[in-house]
Amino acid sequence: MVPGVRTVEIVALLVSSVHAFEGRPADGPRPDPAPVAREHVVVRAGLGLAGDRYFNHPAHRNAAVTLFAAESLDEVATTLGLDAVPDPLLVRRNIVLRGYPVDELAARRGRDGAVFSLDSGDGPVRFRARRPAHPCAWMDTVLAPGAFRALRGHGGVRCVPLDDGTLRLGKATLDVEG
């Protein structure tokens, strides 16, 4: 992980009031009662994303927001020989970025993860990366057979928001503190 400022793109934002991946993957995902794709999300310090199933959930306070690199899906498509790159919303991560290897932000060997900020035009919102967001067997069902294995080590990172703010789709600045 290299500290500093990078220009990235927020390609997907997801807020979901329910957990769609329950039960057995062979049975398919649970229907989501509300649209999950968002043009913008409201971030609340220590709580998560307003409206999300993990917002203010005690068991997820240090992992309420998930961040994912769109490039990981490019690699899945190449590795599995897919005709198209899967929709980034299918991985069910809250914030999908293009332009930075987000998995490098995660905590390693008992240390805290990186502190970083994202600014999509409404001011910076800081996060502390905590732990990797490991992929699950559902990826073989919703993306393609073999995706679960292809995403190992590239499932994103779970974060805690340190500031209130708003994030929007489009160009953004990512600043990793040194």
Rank of each mutant, 00 (worst) to 15 (best):
D32P: 10
D32Y: 04
D32K: 14
A34F: 12
P35I: 00
P35T: 00
A37G: 14
V41S: 02
V41A: 06
V42L: 13
R44S: 13
G46D: 03
G46W: 00
G51D: 03
D52V: 11
R53M: 02
Y54R: 09
F55W: 06
N56H: 12
N56V: 03
H57S: 15
A59H: 14
R61G: 09
A63V: 09
A63T: 13
A64W: 01
A64E: 09
T66R: 08
A69C: 10
S72H: 14
L73V: 13
D74P: 12
D74F: 09
V76F: 05
A77L: 12
T78I: 14
L80F: 01
L80D: 04
D83Y: 05
D83S: 15
A84V: 13
V85E: 08
V85C: 08
P86W: 09
P86I: 12
D87I: 02
P88W: 00
L89S: 10
V91A: 12
N94V: 11
R98G: 01
V102W: 00
V102Y: 00
L105D: 07
L105H: 02
R109Q: 14
A114D: 06
V115W: 01
F116D: 02
F116W: 09
F116M: 10
S117A: 14
L118A: 10
L118V: 07
G123T: 05
G123L: 02
